[in-house]
Amino acid sequence: MTTIQDAAVSRRRAKPRPGKIRPGKIRPAKTPPTKRVGRTVIQAFLLIVGLVWLTPAAGLFLSSLRTEEANASSGWWQALTAPGQLSFDNYTALLKDSGITQAFWNTVLISVPTTIAVVVIAALAGYAFAWLEFPGRDWIFLLVVAMLVVPVQIGLLPVAKLFGALGLFGSIPGVVLFHTAYGLPFAIFLLRNYFAEIPKEMLEAARMDGGGEWRIFSQLVLPLGRPAIASLAIFQFLWVWNDMLVALLFADNASQPLTVALQSQMRQFGSNIGVLAPGAFLSLIVPLIVFFAFQRHFVQGVMAGSVK
């Protein structure tokens, strides 16, 4: 697993180490022509791969800007030669659809509280597992690590029954609670390991100064753990924002997020492109903004969280 620490280590290693170059090792002054040809071929190949990767997404975007009739009769690539057919009509129509806007807000109302809850609860627990003493601590922590790969599927039915009894089924708090619980093992794992790297002397000094555990946690551990917390928060936010399975079961019509609202339109795919394409774009624009705004934390968070 690549964690923040790992990434930092590999970056450090990647730096050129001039001291290591052995004497007598002279680089050829010019790249040989065969090598240059090889490089051009590689460039061309990767360019094609990049284009292939971009095309399906570009297709969605252009389709979302075309009318229903245009999409029904021809492919989105026609818009490349006739950009006149592009308009934001689908988006204005979509934003007037109260079901979709409600679903968008539900997505926000589910992802933001879940992210906060996971970060807070996992930070508390991570600190306890790293620096506090209580009976069975290491065994319990191993159990938490083991829960890392428990599939969400196994929780669906039992938790649905439990929430049914508690009156949480089909509500936003229910979805939030479920996501929080299944986000915790990874979050605790990540933060505990990060907190454990804080130099012991710092904590001891703080304790010596008479700082209570809460003060040490909030004024020393949390600020020091900020990079890990940032990566975790981004990963967790995306995980929940993009989820469909959990909400499909635990949310009702009033509390369903965008993913669930859109999937219900999939049945008539052909005739619903005018809703589905801009809807999908609406749902992926937020993660994309997060992606470009927090590139480094994003990559590290996704990398670390991929074990889930």
Partner: peptide, 22 residues
């Protein structure tokens, strides 16, 4: 790398719609 990594940001649902179209 950035371009190739971008699909990781979006949901399976959005990816699913993208590929139903393709």
């Amino acid at each position: 790398k950035l371009l190739m990594f971008m699909p990781m940001a979006i949901s399976f649902l959005a990816a699913g719609i993208i590929f139903r179209l393709a």
